[in-house]
Design a protein around this nucleic acid. Sequence first.
DNA 1: TGTTAGCACTCACCGGAGTCGAGTGCTAAC
DNA 2: GTTAGCACTCGACTCCGGTGAGTGCTAACA
Lengths: 341, 341
Amino acid sequence: MGMDERKFRILQAIIDDYILTAVPVGSRTISKKYDMGLSSATIRNEMSDLEELGYLDQPHVSAGRIPSAKAYRLYVDQLLHQGLLHSDSESAIRAHFLGRMRQMEDVIDHAAQVLSNLTNYTAVVLPPTGPQPRIRTLQLVPVSNNAALVVIVTDSGIVRDAVIRVSEQLDSDTLYAISKTLTKELSGRTLKEAVELLPQITGRMQDNEKLLQGLNNFFQENSDAANHHAHVAIGGRSNILNYPEYSDTEKARSFLSLMETRDKLASIIAQQGEMAFTVRIGPETGVPEMADCSIVTATYSTGNGQQGTIGVIGPTRMQYNRVLSILGTMGHQLSELFSDD
Amino acid sequence: MGMDERKFRILQAIIDDYILTAVPVGSRTISKKYDMGLSSATIRNEMSDLEELGYLDQPHVSAGRIPSAKAYRLYVDQLLHQGLLHSDSESAIRAHFLGRMRQMEDVIDHAAQVLSNLTNYTAVVLPPTGPQPRIRTLQLVPVSNNAALVVIVTDSGIVRDAVIRVSEQLDSDTLYAISKTLTKELSGRTLKEAVELLPQITGRMQDNEKLLQGLNNFFQENSDAANHHAHVAIGGRSNILNYPEYSDTEKARSFLSLMETRDKLASIIAQQGEMAFTVRIGPETGVPEMADCSIVTATYSTGNGQQGTIGVIGPTRMQYNRVLSILGTMGHQLSELFSDD
DNA sequence: TGTTAGCACTCACCGGAGTCGAGTGCTAAC
DNA sequence: GTTAGCACTCGACTCCGGTGAGTGCTAACA
């Protein structure tokens, strides 16, 4: 007993219907609503086969069938294969990014907001990571008598700053001079390299221990990959409550408290390879709290080859084609936006 | 019929019990659990009076009583008046802030996290606002051929930055020279004043339209009060689900989606005067979605007289004394932290 | 051999009746 | 003024039979 064309069409109909209604689908429904030219009895036989093949589950004997994770997987693979991602939402997304976005974080937050609005699911946007960013400029700005702000601009256009203590009374011009030296020596280096180079360089300068120490910490902290997850943007956290799957308060709570922990969420979303799209369905997510969720992700890239991830989390009966299309478009938009800078 | 000592003690017992159990309180419960030396019948009479006075509500005739908003108000006023805020959580909070916090936002996020953990309610922390911050230093850092990063350091130690376009090819030294001029002219001014002064100053410089335009926008945007709300920190969003009052999914959803809109939330939390503590109960919040929530806020201040707000949102049957004590301690800690810088 | 009509069977869901018990208000006695 | 006693109310829970969607199986048909 194999999976012939007809079985597939019936399965597809079942999935479509279930995605729409969240109610177990019966044989009669399929034979009537989706005119297959087959009687309910025939559909029943096929459904029985499909259940045996593992594509359908039956909550109880006198209810209809619901698609299994395996069924969604097949469905999604089909979608991805034939690539019918008609981007109708293109203009909607584009419109949202017309206003100039100033900072990385603004863009990310905004993207998550838009994604969740368009899909009605929970959206997560991770900032770009990838090849270590290289320092372009480093500048020290006086803040008070014994503190300075260190600002680095990297080739990815991302700016990082922190206040560090400086022991001596350093005026603006001195700080500028130091900045120039540091920029000259460190420009083109990654933050990791900078950590190693720092002692050599400062050895030649008049030593200022506190400054050195501060810079060192700063580089160390910022070169740390974990830190990149600091600015995960999440939108539509409570959207999951729109779906009957999560009308159970206990379930909703465990989901929502997972949404609170950015770090965990980031690592869940981030675990993906080079794929343009990733779809993880139910158990495939590897997260118990998401046993009946699906996670769809896409990537975008910045001018200098860094990669970021955008993702949508919803019930397994997700509108995959819609979500994939929207993610695709959003990915393009973000890539464009970031390659501009 | 007035409110005598005994009535008050009974009311207090009812409130305490209801806060604990969230179940309508009967006369028998009071007479047994809180040994008043009175029979249930007497309590019943008193409760009947208290209901007439508007301190108790009866969900239906054969259920116990629940405290009204008016009752909580009395209870809280009493608490505030006698000031018995024993800060047991002092050390817990202090411990959480031992590690150096680098940025304003980190502190704020962290504070919200800690607050929500300690109270088990939803916590909101607003960054300091108040007297317009005054510019201390302004510096332009080259980013690319046609863009520069403008960084201002204000007297409150808050740093704001943005990338602006510059048309001509300006090298690092030129930008530094411009920075020095601008710092000299603008130092001590508020951002609003800077907007007005800008044309005069740049009139004397070699004009660089794009730079001027960019700076103008930057000042404008950052002097805008609304912008200060950009970094509202929220912790324990889903804590509300721990309480039976919000086991109704529909209610939970409307609450949670309110928690998603930072702006609205900020304005709700922020509306308060000079008070050290504010307690708004149920209808007093003025927000329909929070008809059976209470909002408790406290303030903290920075070295230069700016004020921030921290708040906790929970069900009306909130553990007010605990929350007030924790908020008080947190307020102190934050004030200390910010006056340091 | 595949398709279909028919039929008995299953079982979740719904609404109504009955029961239980917590809690009240009232009255009369202390 | 306080309390014991009692009738009454009403939500919560349980039990139960009816209903209907849906299934599996069988036998007939093309």
